[in-house]
Design a protein around this nucleic acid. Sequence first.
DNA 1: GGGATGCTTCGGCGAAACCCGAAGCATCCG
DNA 2: CGGATGCTTCGGGTTTCGCCGAAGCATCCC
Lengths: 245, 245
Amino acid sequence: MATSNRIAEVAAAVGEPARAAMLAALMDGRALTAAELADLAAITPQTASGHLARLTSVGLITAEKQGRHRYHRLAGADVARMIESVMQIAGGVTLARTIPRIGPRDAALRQARTCYDHLAGGLGVSIADALRASGAVEIDGDAAALTEVGRAQMQALGILAPARSTRPLCRPCLDWSERRPHLAGALGAAICSHALDQVWVRRRAGTRALEITPAGRIGFRQAFGVVTVTGQPGLAASQAERQPW
Amino acid sequence: MATSNRIAEVAAAVGEPARAAMLAALMDGRALTAAELADLAAITPQTASGHLARLTSVGLITAEKQGRHRYHRLAGADVARMIESVMQIAGGVTLARTIPRIGPRDAALRQARTCYDHLAGGLGVSIADALRASGAVEIDGDAAALTEVGRAQMQALGILAPARSTRPLCRPCLDWSERRPHLAGALGAAICSHALDQVWVRRRAGTRALEITPAGRIGFRQAFGVVTVTGQPGLAASQAERQPW
DNA sequence: GGGATGCTTCGGCGAAACCCGAAGCATCCG
DNA sequence: CGGATGCTTCGGGTTTCGCCGAAGCATCCC
């Protein structure tokens, strides 16, 4: 089976702690330099260089040269989806066995972050919950759909262009920290870019975490009825008592 | 990052040719014995035993003892989705580089097979195309939805129970041999089990390929307007001239 | 131009992983 | 009960892989 060899090749590229850490860091869709990735994976630049070459050769990332830096990013949304699905399985068993013990550093990540091109963390899950509660989206297992009323709501908010035809835009994505679905797909991307455009959230330097701005607190409440806090504790509380099923 | 270690652990479990071959074989959702899997991966039973233990310990498969046999199956739909997404990436580059050269053995697989719990191959893609053309489903990128008219059609066919509320049931799944989407999610599973119930397709011994029965030729045409052939060539023809983009 | 910075290539070391032969349990069957 | 079958565990041989130090290019900046 030549085809399963290719499968193994792709999976093996992810199946090494340093490379997995790099890919996870790139999951926010931005491009990082080789040095940043090396630092982040706690390895020397030479070693990172080898890893990056391998990831590039199997097509998981692409590199872009700019001056004396080389920026690496995920090769596409399909790669992000693949890593997402691996995270989902990895997360399940982790939580089942060892109770996670997440430090304060991770609290910001849990509160709000990007997941390739959409919002994740407590914020992303809250938005999905709110849209589901208001009947704007329907989520069932691995499928989701934007309803008519939801489409109208998104257009009124300026998140979706009114001109677009009535195509499905919505995909659920299991949040690895919250273990509940948030919204991905074209709708999730539209919400995320809208939030960034309106400066409801701001990217934090050197991390995938997002900072919710004062404008965001207002915006998210008015748009979705989601109440956020600027500090960590609020949103993190709900998942602190999660059952380690 | 303890979490990326878990990611690597899961991916590494897939990232070895023998294990990848086993997992690919289990993608039809059935359970196979250790010996069958060993044979299929071209390794000795001892080696297979080790691999299976590892796959089980990371939670990708579950084993079930029955007499002196041990039946192994994928641990769940999320595992199938994960492997699917890896196949998708693996397939992309494979086709881009080396023109596949698939033997006659694979022709049956390309024509019709199961993909965990739904139909794949030429048959699966044709059904998806037909449902899309008739306005029963809408597919856009990684999202899909069953329309009102589609829901009515499925209920009339006895594929979906009329009682169910109006939830999204539909997920696109990129076919690794056709490189075009077929239908997964609850709808895909319902179509597949209906086809098996009505003996429109029959499982073939020792392979994931499905045989389209004479009843199936009638059934698929009446239900979906899909014209099938019992031999290989018909459906395979359309993809023989596919561009190796 | 000269030095610093970012990244890659080369070489060698050590650990991990894969593989199989042999042997050990468990189950089934005559 | 005794042999056959299915699977696992054990032991060790070989290969692969990750890692870093040293060295080599390329780019930028003074």
